[in-house]
Write a protein that binds this DNA or RNA. Structure first.
Lengths: 160, 160, 160, 160
DNA sequence: TTTT
DNA sequence: TTTT
């Protein structure tokens, strides 16, 4: 049977503190937006930074790592796959689409405002930060994960 | 200045014959949908194929390769980056989003219904196909590419 | 402690029929060389094909897929990681190195001389080849895999 | 003619201060070793860190970035390709191999002992480091780069 | 909408 | 909404 490849690597900074939820089945889910910046030469020949925003979704153990270590500003490296969900908007009746990156592996990189349990969104530095390790959390996407409907999850339960 | 990584690898089959257009500035643009299939175990424990569809956009020389060699069914390997465009829908006034893969490199893989200039969507095989080469087209995304407005392109000109 | 990323993607053709062995612990191991070709412009300005050869090692279920479906000429897509082993050459006493790609995922692509049970190393084509599927075998590298010595494997048992 | 894919992503820390050289043709070349660590479960069931070392080679502008910003301990993300060179050892007459990663893109990540012009190999921290940016240097491998012999480079000139 |  |  034909199989393909659907693989994404993103390195960027988290835009807001992540949202943590649990599915009806008790699986942890974390979601956050990630900014990847690139230098791009505009039509006027000037170099500017262009930021692309991505919707990241993490599951299970990776979701717990996100809950415990990832904050607004944290720099992370994401490996995952692309998934686009579609639904009919209840108000307008229009078809809507949302593209998300389902994260398989998350590597924490030192830096940014976030990182660790300082209890706030700003990082004050210090010697405890002198050797910022990269820590890599590997989590295969759960096989049944895209099939939220089958798990009896209501709209409000859908974690992203 | 902060820079990030935004990289995608997709291997799959083209869903329909590509659309080829040119920008007001004369740059060739090709767009097509790509299906990446994966085996996924459903909530019922059964293995099924789950297909994800991606909107691919190619520029310049890669767009010409697409025009000449890619058809419905062609199997390709894509390297690119994710970009989400947003706009306000003129009818409903709602914010809409479209996520696309801007292709940097395209590798043709032998197989599928498409491939080559037979003038149709079905491939009849033959000796000329006995050693289906992978051919790799490398095309850096043009720096000014996301900035369609600056090029005086009207809505109808926007090729994707 | 710090963790990193060590990830490789290779698309190419298999150079010779793979070697299949088993470790003392009964784990299947397959090894083969893979050629990745690229068009390179030489110092004389001429375009030539430059071929790079890689040593691929597959384990467990992926090794069985290699045994059953991969031959000289088969086109495959490999995802894996780089590992360099070193040893002291018994004859010369010199330090030697061998770099290998430990394969996590192998995707069979239609094409090349190999593919499937024709019982020989040359592929004769025909209608049986009209729809070459890509099939993707996912195999996480076994955690204990690099530690051959611990498994009581002698030199001659080492499968690569 | 067939073309392939040969792509590597490495995230790790630089083992020693890089070596900087220039080819006979005046091209800057930087080389350094990079450690990628991974948590691996040993045969005894214990989790230990396993470090893999890679030989990285950078060219032109990327080599200059390495010269100016990369030191022992710097954490970097590398995108490149694998190349194995072979030669006959003059003393022993044996065939020798060296596998290197030719770097196309280098992203500096905040952290580690290195980073920036503090004039030493140890990092003393401080407020100037409070927001370690990731900076990404893109450098296509020069087309003529593998062909050292054609450039009249002697053995001692070979920069890696 | 692809592919097997 | 991030980061520099």
């Amino acid at each position: 049977m034909a199989k393909g490849v659907n693989k994404v690597f993103l390195l960027g900074n988290v835009g807001k503190d992540p949202e943590i939820r649990a599915t009806a089945g008790g699986m942890n889910v974390a979601s956050f937006s990630l900014a990847t910046a690139e230098r791009a030469k505009g039509a006027d020949g000037q170099w500017t930074d262009k930021t692309e925003w991505h919707n990241i979704v993490c599951f299970q153990r990776t979701a717990e790592v996100v809950r415990d270590y990832v904050k607004k500003g944290t720099q992370v490296l994401i490996e995952g796959k692309i998934q686009t969900r579609s639904w009919d908007d209840k108000t307008s009746g229009e078809k809507k689409y949302k593209t998300e990156i389902l994260c398989n592996e998350l590597t924490l990189l030192g830096g940014g405002a976030g990182r660790g349990g300082e209890g706030g969104s700003s990082y004050s530095g210090g010697s405890s930060y002198s050797k910022p390790a990269a820590t890599n959390y590997d989590q295969r996407t759960p096989a049944s994960q895209p099939d939220y409907a089958d798990q009896g999850i209501t709209d409000d339960d859908i974690p992203f």
